[in-house]
C-alpha cells in the first residue's frame, strides 16, 4: 500500500486478537450494563479523570490569562473593565430585585403565616467554569468543583442573577453542568405575576421556552419567570428569565412562551452550586397552612 506507515510488530497476531476481543467485550459491557451498575465503570475511570483534570485547570487559567491579556492590550481597557463590572452589577441587582419582589409577593399572600416562612438558608458552593463539554451535541460546562467538595448529580447551578442549569456528572475534582438552554434540561417554572406554572426547557437553537402554561393564563410579554421550588436542586424564586413572546396556536391545549434567560451563558465565569435548596416539604406545609387560613377567613 503506497504511503502507508507500517510500524514494527510488537505483539503477535494472537495477542492482537486477544486485545481486540477484550476491548470488544468492554464495549458490549458498556452498553449492556444497567445504568445503576455503571458506577463500577465510573469508579475505574475516576483516577484517570482526576489526572486529566489537572491539565484542564492549568489550561483554563492559561486561557483566561491570555484572554485577559488580549483584552487589555487590544481593547479600550478601562471602558471594557467598567462595562464588565457594570454589567455584572446590573445582573446581580436584577437578581436581588427579583428575589425581593418574590419575597414581597409571598409576604403579602402569606402575611398571617409568616412564622412558616423560616427559609432554610440556601447553602451554595462557589465554582469556576474551566471548560465546555467535549461535544457539540450537549450544551454543558465543566466546573472546578467535584465530589471531593460535596457536589452531587442533580444539584442546581445558578449565578447571583439566575438559573444556569443542573449537574449531570461528577468526578473527584470536576463536575459537568447541563445548561438550561439544552433540550435535555427541564425545570419547573412559575410566572411571577400570574402564578401559573409550566415546564421551562431548552431548545436545539439554544433558546429557552416555557411549555404547558394553562390556556387561560393572562401571561404576557415582559412577565418574569422564576423557579417554582418543586424541581430538585433549586429554591423557590430564583430568576430564570423574561417572557419574550407567547405562542398560542388554535387547537393547542396549552400556551408556550419564549423566554430570554437572564444569565449570559457565553460569558459566565463563576457560578454557585446549590448544595442545600429549601426543602419542598416546607413549601407544601406553607401552602397547606395557607389553604387552612383561607378556609378560616371564609368561615368568619
Amino acid at each position: 500500500m503506497n504511503g502507508r506507515f507500517r510500524p514494527a510488530v510488537l505483539v503477535g497476531s494472537g495477542t492482537r486478537r486477544i486485545i481486540a476481543v477484550v476491548f470488544a467485550l468492554a464495549c458490549v459491557a458498556f452498553v449492556l450494563l444497567p445504568r445503576h451498575a455503571q458506577f463500577f465503570i465510573h469508579d475505574v475511570g475516576q483516577p484517570l479523570a482526576d489526572v486529566v483534570a489537572i491539565p484542564i485547570e492549568s489550561m483554563a487559567s492559561l486561557t483566561r490569562g491570555l484572554r485577559d491579556g488580549w483584552n487589555q492590550v487590544f481593547s479600550f481597557h478601562t471602558i471594557s473593565e467598567q462595562n464588565h463590572e457594570l454589567h455584572q452589577r446590573v445582573q446581580q441587582l436584577r437578581g436581588e430585585l427579583n428575589q425581593w419582589q418574590e419575597r414581597a409577593l409571598a409576604a403579602d399572600r402569606l402575611a398571617a403565616l409568616v412564622e412558616f416562612q423560616q427559609h432554610t438558608p440556601i447553602r451554595t458552593v462557589a465554582a469556576q467554569v474551566i471548560g465546555r463539554s467535549t461535544s457539540n451535541w450537549y450544551q454543558g460546562v465543566v466546573l472546578n468543583k467535584g465530589e471531593h467538595d460535596g457536589i452531587r448529580v442533580e444539584m442546581g447551578v445558578m449565578t447571583p442573577a439566575g438559573v444556569v442549569g443542573q449537574i449531570v456528572k461528577t468526578t473527584g475534582s470536576t463536575s459537568i453542568v447541563l445548561l438550561m438552554t439544552d433540550p435535555n434540561v427541564a425545570i419547573l417554572g412559575l410566572v411571577q405575576r400570574t402564578r401559573d406554572e409550566g415546564i421551562v426547557q431548552g431548545t436545539p437553537q439554544s433558546h429557552v421556552w416555557m411549555k404547558y402554561i394553562p390556556p387561560l393564563s393572562p401571561v404576557r410579554k415582559g412577565d418574569v419567570v422564576v423557579t417554582s421550588g418543586l424541581t430538585d436542586g433549586f429554591p423557590r424564586g430564583v430568576l430564570i428569565g423574561e417572557v419574550a413572546r407567547i405562542e398560542e396556536r388554535e387547537g393547542d391545549l396549552f400556551q408556550t412562551a419564549d423566554i430570554v434567560p437572564v444569565v449570559n451563558f457565553q460569558r459566565m465565569e463563576e457560578v454557585l452550586i446549590v448544595t442545600s435548596p429549601q426543602p419542598v416539604e416546607a413549601m407544601l406545609s406553607i401552602e397547606q397552612a395557607l389553604d387552612s387560613r383561607e378556609n378560616e377567613n371564609a368561615a368568619q
Partner: peptide
C-alpha cells in the same frame, strides 16, 4: 486505532454532559 479510540473516548466521557459510554464506543 481501536484501543486508542477506546481510551480517548473513555476519558472524554468524564467531561461530557451526555451518556457515559457514548464517546468510548
Amino acid at each position: 486505532g481501536g484501543v486508542l479510540g477506546f481510551f480517548l473516548g473513555f476519558v472524554q466521557d468524564f467531561f461530557f454532559a451526555g451518556t457515559l459510554w457514548l464517546n468510548t464506543l
